[in-house]
Design a protein around this nucleic acid. Sequence first.
DNA 1: AATTGTTTATGCGAAC
DNA 2: GTTCGCATAAACAATT
Length: 248
Amino acid sequence: MPRPSRESYGDQKPPYSYISLTAMAIWSSPERMLPLSEIYRFITDRFPYYRRNTQRWQNSLRHNLSFNDCFVKVPRRPDRPGKGAYWTLHPQAFDMFENGSLLRRRKRFKLQKGEKDNLNAELAALASFNRAFLARQAGAPPPPPVLPTATMYTPPMCQQLSPEPAELPEVATITMLPRERPRRAFTIDALLEPEPPRSPPSPTMPRLAIPMPSPYMLAAQRYHAELLQVAAHVLRPCYIPPPPLPVA
DNA sequence: AATTGTTTATGCGAAC
DNA sequence: GTTCGCATAAACAATT
């Protein structure tokens, strides 16, 4: 008897919500972020059910992406042009599913107004950063970056990776840490397997408080570090442009 | 023009 | 009986 696997759904509708399917796709990617088209592809590759009626479910999925706070739209990095942004999971939404099971969701993930504002401020900063990058590449003088006035501070992610250049503009960052480590391996196969028996509910179950950067944070760290390296040149007050790059 | 993203509305089943 | 999570439809804006 074949063990139940992701293939065994065949043409049947898999028991996962769009939120689960999308989270699955995002988790499965090396950078923990994907453009919309890749999310579609992940789903149709694995679940034949979704190879039909694509208009219908893709509309629903897009609705889920922008409606739910657990998904974050990250501006596409300027060196990877293309259509649409990258989608990732909010760091705090990482433990959205009980025990890491995609079949059991905790209560709906909703950001508070302030949290949402902060996040939007950071994403706006990132976007304007990208614009500056592109303007610089196009040979135009870089426009003054439009940075949020509310919270200006140094991204801790850059401190980790490289010493902080003093003259860099400060960029808002995501301050949240994951609430708790997932208790189940975040591999697609592990997530698609039937759930392990739940441990008996213990009122004194210890809560791990280890601050653990989510994959999203790690990817964002790399991304920011790369951008800031460029920015360190672009935005230096007495910036002397390097010789133009050889045209390929 | 096609794709991507946002928003509003409605209905259904389960949980509270 | 109300609330919550989810699916679906649809209108529309923005982006490429």
